Amino acid sequence: MKKLFFVFFLALLHLVTFAQSIVLDKEKLLEYYQTQRYADAAQYLKSIYPTDTKDVKALSQMAYCNMMAGKLPEAEKSYLSINEIQPNTLPVLFNLANINTRRGNDTKAKAYLESIVKIDTINFNAFKQLAGLIKDSLQLKIAYLKKANSLNSADADVATDLAQGYRDLQQWALGYQVLKVAIAADTSNLFLLQAQLPFANELKKYKEVIYVGEKLLKDGTDANVVKNVGKAYYFLKNYQKCINLYEMLEKMAMQNEMTLYLMTLSYRELKNLDMAMVYAKKTIEEGVSANTATYYGLLAGLQESNGNLTTSVSSYKRGLTFSENSNIYYRLGLLYDLKLKQQKSALTYYNLYLKSKPDVNSEKEQIEYVKTRVSDLKVTTK
């Protein structure tokens, strides 16, 4: 019995001696913090404490320093150790979520945040961060944003994101109301005021759009504000103001199909048919992608492969109405020549292919083949 007591006494004495041997240089650590040398601070703490320490305060310091130094794996290791010793501590769970978000591991981050909202069902920051991690479910994202917004309706980021969700669902009145409440809490927030303009336009609050939008434009020209204010002027039949605003966008090369279309209609209402035709053409050009001809060429090729030759010809020709495309000319030439046996049409498209100036390096073999076929067909089609 005395021997057992003696062994226990020696073990206790060792622990006390070890604990007394850890002398933390607080001034040195403070200097590291003040000069933001967090990596040095982390290394210093690591040299002081054993690798298997269970000291929560020491682990917290090391985790913080490593996280601030960008050493996320080391920070996560320390926070995980703390979580084992003191499970489900909110600051630790938040830090683990933050680390995993920064490392691109959204699944783990969401798991930690979900643990937080189970513990604290009214934790605004957790719901806000959860919403930010949702990429594949608009309904779930909106659900988290609604919860966060109910906890803090004045938060501009949440209000804007929630309104955007409602916009995607075409629920304009709900989005407008969310932003209205946030604006009431911060009437000078230009981002919120700007975000509300498209909602007000959709709800036909045109005078409000113009009043707010013109004030915003005094602080600088913003393309989105100009688009919304111009649209409001159009629907209030102030066609010249609409044109004036959208001309500003043209000068900045920030026009789009909608603005050009409204300019066309505005010129028409002002009986300026010449300008209306100019902008009608611009609207058509803006509405067509530079790749549309290529897309039709792809569709036509698939139809040709499937044996739908007549449909394929129509699709190839439809593509050419959008822009000249040397590949389509070539494919039509082949189709008429080899499959439809219409040699005159084949000759026409082969010539168009050569006139379109195909790349002599990447299409060398095609060019040589077409030139040979053109020579042959000129003889047979006489």
Rank of each mutant, 00 (worst) to 15 (best):
D120L: 10
D120M: 10
T121I: 05
I122T: 14
F124R: 03
F124A: 07
A126E: 01
F127M: 06
F127E: 04
F127H: 07
F127A: 09
K128C: 04
Q129A: 10
L130S: 05
G132H: 06
G132E: 00
L133W: 03
I134H: 05
K135D: 12
D136Q: 09
S137T: 07
L138V: 07
Q139K: 13
L140H: 03
L140W: 06
I142V: 12
A143G: 03
A143I: 07
Y144A: 08
Y144I: 11
Y144F: 15
K146I: 09
K147C: 05
K147A: 09
A148E: 06
N149F: 14
S150E: 14
L151C: 08
N152R: 02
N152Q: 11
S153M: 09
S153W: 06
S153A: 15
S153V: 12
S153C: 04
A154N: 13
A154H: 08
A154V: 01
D155R: 05
A156N: 12
D157R: 02
D157H: 11
V158S: 08
A159M: 08
D161R: 13
D161G: 02
A163M: 00
Q164S: 08
G165W: 09
Y166P: 00
Y166K: 00
R167G: 11
D168E: 11
L169C: 05
L169K: 06
Q170P: 00
Q171W: 02
W172R: 05
A173V: 05
L174S: 12
Y176C: 09
L179M: 03
A182W: 04
A184G: 15
A185E: 05
D186C: 12
T187G: 10
N189G: 08
N189C: 06
L190M: 13
L190K: 13
F191T: 14
L192P: 04
L192H: 00
L193K: 13
L193N: 03
Q194N: 12
Q194S: 14
L197M: 08
L197Y: 04
P198H: 12
P198R: 08
F199Y: 13
F199S: 03
A200T: 01
N201T: 10
N201Y: 06
E202A: 13
L203T: 00
K204G: 03
K204F: 11
K205C: 02
K207D: 14
K207E: 15
K207W: 05
E208D: 15
V209A: 07
I210Q: 04
Y211A: 15
V212D: 03
V212S: 08
E214I: 09
K215H: 12
K215M: 15
K215F: 14
L216W: 12
L216D: 03
L216P: 00
L217H: 04
L217P: 00
L217G: 14
K218H: 10
K218Q: 14
K218R: 14
K218S: 13
D219K: 15
D219W: 11
G220L: 11
T221G: 04
T221H: 04
A223L: 06
A223N: 14
N224K: 11
N224D: 15
V225Y: 07
V225G: 10
V226C: 01
K227N: 09
N228S: 15
V229L: 07
V229F: 03
G230K: 05
G230Y: 09
A232P: 07
A232Y: 11
A232I: 12
Y234H: 03
Y234P: 00
F235V: 02
F235W: 09
L236E: 14
K237A: 11
N238A: 12
Y239C: 05
Q240S: 13
K241G: 02
C242P: 04
I243R: 07
N244I: 07
N244E: 06
